[in-house]
Design a binder for these strands. Sequence first.
DNA 1: GTCAAGCCGATTGTCTGACATTCTTGCAAT
DNA 2: ATTGCAAGAATGTCAGACAATCGGCTTGAC
Lengths: 223, 223
Amino acid sequence: MPPDLNLRISPRTVQRETVDKLRLAIFSGLFQPGSRLVESQLCTQLGISRPSLREALRSLEAERLIEIVPNRGPSIPALSWEVATAIYEVRELLEVEAAGRCALRISPEQLRELEKSLSAFEEAASSNDSLAQVMTAADFYSIILANCGNPILEEVHRGLVARISFFRGRSMSLDGRAQSSLAEMREIFESIAAGDEKAARKASKQHVLKAKAAAKISMDNGI
Amino acid sequence: MPPDLNLRISPRTVQRETVDKLRLAIFSGLFQPGSRLVESQLCTQLGISRPSLREALRSLEAERLIEIVPNRGPSIPALSWEVATAIYEVRELLEVEAAGRCALRISPEQLRELEKSLSAFEEAASSNDSLAQVMTAADFYSIILANCGNPILEEVHRGLVARISFFRGRSMSLDGRAQSSLAEMREIFESIAAGDEKAARKASKQHVLKAKAAAKISMDNGI
DNA sequence: GTCAAGCCGATTGTCTGACATTCTTGCAAT
DNA sequence: ATTGCAAGAATGTCAGACAATCGGCTTGAC
């Protein structure tokens, strides 16, 4: 059998990417919190019809990336500090668990992947591209979550991180935050590499707590 | 002005309830896992148009209550034991945390509510109505999660419990499971009432572990 | 000048109907 | 029995339409 000629001459089912486009746009902070998303505008911008768009919007609503109030339409929710705190707390719960499990079971192969993503973050941290920083940092966690042995942990975590992505760009651009974040992540990596569950949990907890503190600072500064 | 005759001759915004109807139907086990949901059929059954139905289906897809394969349409996912295990594990993480927090901060008023829901479960446990058992048990957790001080914890938990609701009816009808469940829940309640965080965590953990074991048994029995 | 009432445009909620694409299933031919 | 094909069914997507609702603006009264 010839090796998978999955060429797809005529790109079918491209509509489903709409939701990904929108999601990415939200991540990138293209829309201000609180701003409304007018359906007709999005339709023309995305080149799709209103029914299709509305389907995509429903998905995003279920993911809590947008909110839809009846007769007012979709908008980007303004994340209150209360909710952000709650998200960080649950993130802590999940990441600590994942890091601990990961330390006990990650394969050497995946460990190299993790190291690579840490290097990628290191490079991003030297730059001023906060979007790249957020993205590479997200990769780092993703690898940990993907190797913790519990797909649900990963899934839930992804959903939560998505909701605070808006913040994370802001707080990452705080002075020195990227560098200290790097140090924390390196410690997590070392612990996992050493197979030290307790240390991985501790380092992971520290990291989330620091991230939360940074987020609070950037929010108080009204950035 | 006459006092709010909210008669709603022409029922407005009733469409949004469609998703609730469907969700309830899924909870109740009306559809077999793996069975397909044909859009045109659902449209006539629910009395709505296809676009509206598809919006509802997208919501349910994002909640992982159904899955939609391109060009094959929506269906009820067959829950593998691997995924179910993962869900129970995360549930444990969340419930333990919530019970612990709840013990430290619940108001006397809400504590009475919790007691009431425990009584409701007690009554259901005496009967053979496993749906009522699942529902009242869900109420019990909901109150704990709603009073743990972290709305995200509650939200995530609700999503996870929804996905294993199919099972829970089955495992609850195992011989003696409802009664032992009652005992475990009572212990959780007592710990919370006493404000004993550690005990609440321990009892909560025990409860989830037992529930998981019961689910495994009922699954192995191929029920 | 300020405030309240009412009207108008903009936007959403929902439907009908349509058509191309894709999957499934049954039938025919080898 | 297996293969291939063709008809039917279901989905993916669109266009257009219309009522209901919301928000802002104008108008009028004090």
